[in-house]
Design a protein around this nucleic acid. Structure first.
Lengths: 203, 203
DNA sequence: CTCCAAATCTGAACGATGTGCAGATTATTC
DNA sequence: GAATAATCTGCACATCGTTCAGATTTGGAG
């Protein structure tokens, strides 16, 4: 199903999905703060009012975009984990690092989308259920990764209870600071090094 | 000098400062994404065009607000540090914790201002010099705090080189995630506990 | 003190935006 | 095939950022 409404027809056929797709591309290019509902509608070949049948306002459209992005990010993390299968301590450690790197790589290659997700553009009310679900999916991936490290005795015992919260906070913080230009991009690897060291990962 | 232009006068007398002050209050209340240049001008008692004498566009006004906020944050951190003077290891540790808490407390009590600072609203170009200066002021406070901990042998040697970058990333990440509703507020203290533990602070 | 230039502010205007509403068009159901 | 629901259009309105010509005031030079 194409994004553009077929000429001469009245019904689009797939408007909601097309709106999200077009909005996503436009946010990716120009940032969520410059998204125009009218431009999205025009891109899709539909009148501005048509969007209001699926979203009560522009913010909800944006939240809809965010909803999909959180799913995409969880997928990405899943893919990162599956790159290093196996039960060895080495593999577990590689998975941990891959998880952090995937988060950062995604954010820096799609800065505008990352901002939309974590910059307060998604009204948590609207897409709360779906977003929370995808977020806990990603959270569980991180948990299992840390569990694997724990199983191979590759993480300091006293610190283990803080593992998830510390890892996410640190990786997210470094990512956000770098994306917004407050830290140089090169420092992300240092952060990963320091995080592993401080958690006692990899000896 | 009042915010409102004295009635019957033509010149305001303190427009630039008044614009920043009014804009700050409005962002504080409604968020930077809902700031209206016209509303700011009206609040100050001036025509919308008057603002363009001091800022080439709305984004620059917002950057001007951000500029002041970074200064205010650095002041806040300075105040936090001075709450626990002394050379003892205990005092140094209290300073480290106070630094993190000040960052978080400020952010959660002024979520909209925090978002303005770190959410990509400040065009780094415009206020780059001044913002970077205040940021490095805060950075230096963190450095000296970690130096103190190092002096009292209260931080793991191998981790020390990562101290600043890890601390800022972790505290900023946890703060941002909590402010945006991705983590419960209560988890911030856990993050601080975990951070100290993982850095080897306080034994 | 006077006059001129620079600084500061106004007013009206333009195009674009988000949104509401009445009604047109198409799909669905009986 | 007719009634009902789903979808979409067209127009309107208020608001917004921004521009620009010109009004008003200030400050300094003569």
């Amino acid at each position: 199903m194409s994004l553009l409404k077929p000429r001469g027809t009245y019904h689009h056929g797939n408007l909601q999905a097309a709106l999200i797709a077009a909005a996503t591309q436009m946010v990716r290019a120009n940032g969520a703060e410059h998204l125009s509902l009218r431009a999205v509608a025009a891109e899709v070949g539909v009148s501005p009012s048509a969007a209001y049948h699926y979203y009560p306002d522009k913010d909800s459209l944006i939240s809809g975009v965010g909803q999909e992005l959180f799913e995409r990010l969880a997928d990405l993390q899943e893919a990162a984990l599956s790159q290093f299968p196996g039960k060895s301590a080495k593999a577990a450690r590689a998975r941990f690092r891959a998880l952090g790197r995937a988060y950062f790589d995604w954010a820096s290659s799609e800065a505008n989308l990352f901002r939309l997700m974590f910059g307060g553009f998604c009204s948590i009310d609207f897409a709360e259920a779906q977003i929370k679900r995808q977020e806990s999916r990603a959270w569980n991936l991180l948990c299992s990764c840390l569990d694997d490290l724990q199983a191979s005795g590759d993480i300091k015992k006293t610190i283990r209870p803080y593992g998830e919260i510390l890892s996410w906070s640190t990786v997210h913080g470094a990512t956000a600071l770098i994306v917004e230009g407050h830290l140089p991009a090169a420092s992300f690897e240092s952060v990963l090094d320091g995080l592993e060291l401080s958690l006692g990962i990899g000896k």
